[in-house]
Amino acid sequence: MIDDASLAAWCDAMAALLDLPIERGDRAEILANLRLIARQIGLVGDVALDDLAEPAPVFRA
């Protein structure tokens, strides 16, 4: 589980790197969404996948 301080630091760093004007939004809501996303990433990670598993094809030549 990611702690709130780490998530807030991630949010601010990513906003600076991506030039996202998060001050025009609601930082508390953004952090709440990041917490939700972190939980979803954790659920995805619960499934053991082989290192060589291929991602879904999203491009065809």
């Binding site: 949010c11 906003a15 939004g25 991602p55 879904a56």
Partner: peptide
């Protein structure tokens, strides 16, 4: 805003799970 901050590895893992 939150979606823009997701690490690439998490998205690629989700795409791998999709194929699986």
């Amino acid at each position: 805003f939150a979606g823009a901050m997701i690490p690439a590895e998490a998205v690629l893992r989700a795409q791998k799970l999709r194929a699986w």
